[in-house]
Write a protein that binds this DNA or RNA. Structure first.
Lengths: 259, 259
DNA sequence: AGGTGTGAAGTTTTTCACAGCC
DNA sequence: GGCTGTGAAAAACTTCACACCT
């Protein structure tokens, strides 16, 4: 169905730009690291460096949350950690179900960043009856048949799909029907969901393709010499900026996890 | 070296917007599916629906590549597949090394979407000597000591880091020193790289946090009473992408590990 | 009729740069 | 002196809407 549609109409007064929301987790991670080293305060410059963005952007982002800094000094680390956590809704417990316990699902289940960020793996679900009962990351895998029951009993509102592409839409439909309203999709397919349900997608190969695009640009630039195939249109290559990014792609949001 | 090239700003630039580049893999995936079903042509409307974007955006995106459609008809599927592949640099072979063969690394190694898109897993590398020689996805894992040799011998320019956060920067430094100029980072840490090296990151917990933010908002803003108009959450929709990247392309994701 | 290609308008995001407070 | 907070300007991106080709 339609995929089109824009974004939010800005919920009432609290209008934090989407781009800012996408960076809050980044800041939070950097701040958490500082907190663990017992650093009391940071300047926008330092924090920005740690998060991989520029300081003006960071200050602007924080300005949407409120005035939590002190001129001439910087930001109080603990305080900011709390404010951002609260803004992101991480001060509450979010039960999450992971469907599809293959290598990726297992990697996700083992991901430590979950628990420490307000997320709790409520259940691991797989369609393979042979997996049932088998523990992964200390949690016994349950069969797909249990899906609805688990979601309802635990009040799960966030689901993670790590199944093969072919099963994703079906799993998605069941999750939504059972009450899930936010889905993180790792399957390389476009999911159709009813209005009111959020879907975020993470695709391993898309990122690589984007890298290939830039890589090609670096290498080529003239020695293209692709005279093999038919297609017309001169081989006008070109260079585009990216301007030799040194660090992180500040504008992105993708996500997956570490091993 | 890289920075050398005396290129002028060039007024008529062929620079494709970053946002467009990030969507090309999506279109490519949708087109590939159509191609497999032997569909000869598609309209921007149909293709947009399949890719999860709106048609105006899609047409605009394609306009940066050239005029590959036919008015009144649509786009030739095969031709577009070729053009986009070429634009992304997927018509050539990209050897890739994956460092860190835990669950995630294994999931990546098994990911079918790579091979079918111009990527070739040149090597799997892990720091654990016990893993050496063990085959994952049919490829024997090699020890980190071999890293430099592999990169140089195979002319690898793209590296994937799937190690724990603590090892990421070190691995990154070695990759860069050995000649890698594009890195896909799955470790939840900001990598420092010299100019000229591209880094894209994928972080699971960040995506979940963004979902939590929106989820929290849904819960908290429930309009009571059914006045008759759309009550809560105005018009939200589905898939979204953010700034730089997030969608997902093809192939199939991990797989359910049979016993 | 049907559908692309694209200026122009509209929106969001980033960057600048500096007033204002510590 | 140092650093935040933020209007204002700039840039990037999206959407509109329609001329124009088939």
């Amino acid at each position: 169905m339609a995929t089109g549609r824009a974004h939010r109409p800005a919920t009432r007064s609290r209008g934090i730009p989407e781009a800012t929301v996408a960076r809050l987790p980044l800041y939070l991670r950097a701040l958490t690291a500082l907190s663990e080293r017992s650093v009391p305060t940071v300047s926008s410059e330092e924090l920005a460096a740690a998060a991989g963005v520029n300081s003006a952007k960071l200050r602007k982002d924080f300005s949407y949350l409120g005035s939590y800094g002190t001129r001439g000094v910087g930001y109080d680390v603990e305080y900011l950690v709390y404010q951002i956590s609260r803004e992101l809704g991480l001060t509450q417990d979010w039960p999450v179900v992971i469907v599809g316990i293959g290598n990726l699902g297992a990697a996700l289940a083992n991901y430590g960043g979950f628990a420490s960020r307000g997320f709790r793996v409520a259940a691991l679900i797989d369609a393979d009856p042979g997996m049932a009962g088998k523990p992964v990351a200390g949690i016994p895998v349950q069969h797909t048949d249990e899906l609805e029951k688990i979601i309802q009993d635990d009040g799960v509102s966030i689901g993670v799909i790590a199944t093969p592409a072919g099963a994703a839409q079906q799993v998605c439909d069941r999750l939504v029907a059972a009450g899930v309203t936010s889905i993180l999709n790792f399957a390389p397919t476009v999911l159709n969901v009813p209005e009111g349900v959020d879907v975020r997608k993470v695709d391993l190969s898309i990122e690589l393709q984007i890298l290939a695009f830039h890589e090609q640009r670096k290498a080529g630039e003239d020695a293209a010499g692709d005279a093999g195939v038919v297609p017309p249109v001169a081989a006008r290559k070109q260079q585009h900026s990216t301007g030799s990014a040194d660090q992180g792609p500040d504008g992105d949001v993708p996500a997956v996890m570490p091993a």
